[in-house]
């Protein structure tokens, strides 16, 4: 057995040269491209992870915003509902008040109208009654429309205060209105009765006034003494209207 040392040395050199060649042209470029791909993949993964993190953050923000919107919406709905309830209650109360006011006004108006109607009706009835009475009294004879009221006038003057009575006729003829033209007897009888109750003669300025219907009206300086149907009917009418 012999070893060719030249061959051994050459083969060792050959393998070392091959080692350098493969290292230079095979292992280094291939491992570099693998590393580059891994770096690119890592970079892509990092970018994807960053994008995913951003997306998750955006999603979380959107969800938070959505929750905020939902809360705001619920709050706004509650406020709107409350406001609507308040407005409805206020409107209802205002409407009720308005209705009540209108109803009260209508009731008052109705009562007023009823009162007016009643008053008018009573007034009309009173006028009618007075008119009926006047028409009926118009049928009385002219003497009955004056003579029957002379005593009553004298009694009314007698009930006046002393001082007022003393003033009647003191300053000249006293205006006297008669429902019908007075006869001389009736005028004398009246002067006599007035002289008795006043204590002094009384001059009269007699005028005829058919509106009195029946009776007399003495217009003294400080008093007006009425004794005629016109005044009675007016008083009755006033009483009737007052009772309404």
């Amino acid at each position: 057995m012999s070893i060719d040392w030249w061959t051994l040395g050459l083969q060792a050199v050959n393998v070392l040269v091959l080692l350098w060649i493969l290292s230079r042209f095979l292992f280094r470029p291939v491992s570099d491209i693998i590393a580059a791909r891994q770096a690119a993949a890592t970079q892509d993964l990092d970018a994807a992870q960053a994008t995913r993190a951003e997306a998750e953050a955006a999603l979380a923000a959107a969800q938070e915003q959505l929750a905020g919107v939902a809360a705001t919406r619920a709050q706004m709905l509650a406020e709107a509902r409350s406001e609507a309830d308040r407005s409805r209650d206020q409107l209802l109360s205002e409407a009720r008040a308005e209705v009540e006011k209108l109803r009260t006004a209508a009731q008052a108006d109705r009562l007023h109208r009823q009162q007016e109607a009643s008053h008018a009706m009573h007034a009309e009835a009173a006028e009618l009654a007075v008119d009926i009475a006047r028409r009926l009294l118009d049928r009385l004879p002219a003497t009955a429309r004056v003579a029957g009221f002379i005593d009553g006038l004298a009694e009314a003057v007698a009930r006046l205060p002393e001082r007022t009575r003393a003033g009647i006729g003191a300053e000249g003829p006293v205006p006297l209105r008669a429902a019908a033209e007075m006869s001389g007897d009736e005028a004398d009888h009246l002067r006599e009765r007035l002289a008795r109750v006043t204590g002094h003669p009384v001059a009269l300025a007699v005028t005829t006034d058919p509106t009195l219907i029946a009776g007399l009206e003495l217009d003294a300086p400080h008093a007006v003494v009425r004794n005629h149907f016109r005044a009675d009917l007016d008083r009755i009418r006033q009483e009737l209207l007052k009772n309404d």
Binding site: T7, L10, N14, L18, I21, L26
Partner: peptide, 17 residues
């Protein structure tokens, strides 16, 4: 001296390179 293994190895070396 160049032997056959050396020659074959050179061929392999050149081919691989």
């Amino acid at each position: 001296p160049i032997t056959a293994p050396v020659l074959v190895t050179w061929a392999i070396l050149i081919g691989l390179a």
